[in-house]
Design a protein around this nucleic acid. Structure first.
Lengths: 146, 146
DNA sequence: GCTGAAAGCATCTCGAC
DNA sequence: GTCGAGATGCTTTCAGC
């Protein structure tokens, strides 16, 4: 991948709805050239999609937490992601190295909802949980080095 | 907020580039009505922006980790976010409850780059670090309950 | 707050280089 | 890989309700 594709990725990470016309102006290419490059970036899988960024506080999910989980029976087959996929409050699921197996990022409406979710997580995946509550988020989703 | 705004948020979270024409079809409103609602959602801050979703492995940042930090001098003023803002590898910074002060999510190219980043984090913020390496990510950025 | 219509732009495809 | 042009479709505004 080269310089101009990195530039396009950066521009689209900053503004996912930027028009091809504007992308062309910024990159110095023609509209059709940018268009083709963006399509190629999607086809190659470098761009997996576009999404609206939503303020979770304002839509009624003000409480974020990280939940680390550890199987109660270490001999049981590890299908935790499948078992947890149905819980919509879980925004992300990472398999990790270390004492615990997975780190989940969850969003809920209240402490009560968190307690309820933790019970559902333990029941669904037969795991112990360790929860770290987020107090504030100085920044999130910042674009890494391109 | 009401039902139809939730629907619009869901559609835009799934496809941030969906046209107003398609949004109108899905919601049963006229094109101008959806247009007006989306503008209002942005103005009210429920939609903070739009972004391209990028495959970090394919752009050369295959290693993700969570770095928890704890101040070495607990009496010093806590301006860690300001001190860390210049490190572009840090994708997110959450202030958390518990033994440690912040959880950082970082993306790097290699174990060597991670080691180097940890040194820069410790130097910049005068903190001790505890790092959890991500092995795989069953899912991430899934839309929470709307 | 919703609608429909109209003007201005953007998208997307092609043929050519 | 890039370009320019053209048909199609989308965005955006506005008057009317």
């Amino acid at each position: 991948m080269e310089e101009i594709d990195r530039q396009i990725l950066g521009l689209l990470a900053d503004d996912g709805r930027m028009s091809f016309t504007d992308l062309a102006r910024e990159t110095g290419l023609s509209v059709s050239a940018v268009h083709q490059r963006v399509r190629r970036l999607q086809k190659r899988g470098l761009v997996t999609g576009f999404t609206a960024q939503i303020d979770h506080e304002l839509i009624g999910l003000p409480l974020t937490a990280f939940v680390s989980i550890k199987p109660i029976d270490p001999a049981a087959p590890d299908d935790a992601p499948d078992r947890l996929a149905g819980l919509a409050e879980i925004e992300a699921c990472h398999s990790v190295a270390g004492d615990e197996s997975y780190i989940l990022k969850v969003r809920v409406a209240s402490p009560n909802a968190l307690e309820d979710l933790l019970q559902r997580i333990r029941a669904a995946a037969n795991v112990a949980t360790r929860t770290t509550v987020v107090l504030s988020t100085p920044w999130e989703g910042r674009r890494p080095l391109l």
